[in-house]
Simulated scan of single mutants.
Amino acid sequence: MASIFTKIINREIPAQIVAEDENYIAFLDIMPLVKGHVLVVPKQEVDYIFNLEPEVLSGLHLFAQKVAKAMDKTIKCTRIGVAVIGLEVPHVHVHLVPLKTMDDINFTRPKLKLSSEELAEIANQIRKGF
């Protein structure tokens, strides 16, 4: 069965996509830790990051860097934090989280519930950074 991320890639379910190329996609987390929390995903469905082929793994990080730089330009934060947990969805994904404090990347705290309008505005803001 396809992961929820594959369904986003295939446009079977909606997402606020901020960047995409032939191999990778970046979209807003719908249950973010903070406003602007982005997930960067390879289009190839692989469960565990260290099972990616080396060129896919390096490409994922280079694509994430481009997204993080766009986020840096458009979101007020100290820096963009990076996390790979790999337990929530069986499809490799990198979390890019705008940070003001260490607690902003604490995955045990309650997630935000943003409206679709708020998510759309944040996505538009990040896209302006490219």
Rank of each mutant, 00 (worst) to 15 (best):
V41D: 03
A68S: 04
D103F: 11
T108R: 13
T78L: 10
T74P: 00
V97E: 05
I122D: 12
L57M: 13
Q44H: 14
H91C: 05
V82H: 08
P110E: 14
V89K: 04
L52G: 10
S58D: 07
V82C: 09
C77S: 07
H37Y: 02
E88S: 10
A15V: 03
T108A: 12
Q125I: 06
T6V: 11
T101Q: 01
P42N: 12
V46C: 12
L60R: 08
E53W: 15
S58E: 08
F5D: 03
F5Y: 11
L119A: 09
P42W: 14
Q44T: 13
L57V: 04
R127W: 03
I85C: 15
V41Q: 06
M1R: 15
M71A: 08
A19K: 00
V56M: 15
A83N: 04
P14S: 07
P98Y: 05
L60Y: 01
D29N: 11
I8E: 00
E55G: 11
L114T: 09
L60T: 11
Q44G: 15
I9W: 02
I8V: 06
F27Q: 06
I126P: 00
V67Q: 00
N10E: 09
D104I: 08
E53D: 15
A68H: 02
V84E: 08
E45F: 09
L39S: 15
D72W: 06
T101S: 03
V41C: 01
T101F: 02
E118R: 04
A123Y: 09
L62V: 01
A2N: 08
A2G: 11
V56P: 01
K35N: 07
A19V: 08
D103M: 05
A19L: 02
A70H: 10
V46I: 10
